[in-house]
């Protein structure tokens, strides 16, 4: 087997942006679903110039999503498909899951702190 090549995880790739049609292709969903997910606040396209125009329906084609949004959409799509969630349920689930994640992180940090204040 040949020596594997080294791939450089370029941090600039974090700034990658995806168009609405790219997002749809990757997640395997119809445009309308993504538009609805945006309307429910499940994800948001990156804000460009905040003109009234960018909120209009015809501006959807200029929407751009960042990597975090893409990964959230993947997650949303898996949950929707596997657990047969409707969009309001999905939005609520994701919000609650975010809260759980934050709380868990805080607990880990606090536990760590606490362990240092106990008798060693």
């Amino acid at each position: 087997m040949s020596t594997p090549t080294i791939h450089i995880a370029d941090i600039e790739h974090t700034a990658a942006l995806f168009s609405l049609s790219e997002i749809c292709e990757r997640c395997g969903v119809k445009t309308e679903i993504i538009v609805e997910m945006v309307e429910y606040g499940i994800v948001a396209p990156v804000t460009q110039s905040l003109t009234a125009e960018s909120h209009a329906v015809h501006a959807q084609h200029s929407w751009q999503f960042n990597l975090d949004a893409l990964i959230r959409l993947y997650r949303a799509q898996r949950l929707r498909r596997d657990l047969e969630l409707n969009l309001p349920g999905l939005a609520l689930s994701l919000e609650l899951m975010d809260q759980v994640d934050t709380l868990k992180q805080q607990i880990t940090t606090l536990r760590h702190e606490l362990s240092k204040h106990r008798d060693e």
Binding site: H7, A9, I11, T14, D68
Partner: peptide, 16 residues
């Protein structure tokens, strides 16, 4: 083999 740039933070996503 992945070269990780210095200064990544938890939860950060990187695309290859």
């Amino acid at each position: 083999n992945i070269k990780i740039p210095a200064g990544v933070t938890p939860g950060q996503r990187i695309r290859l």
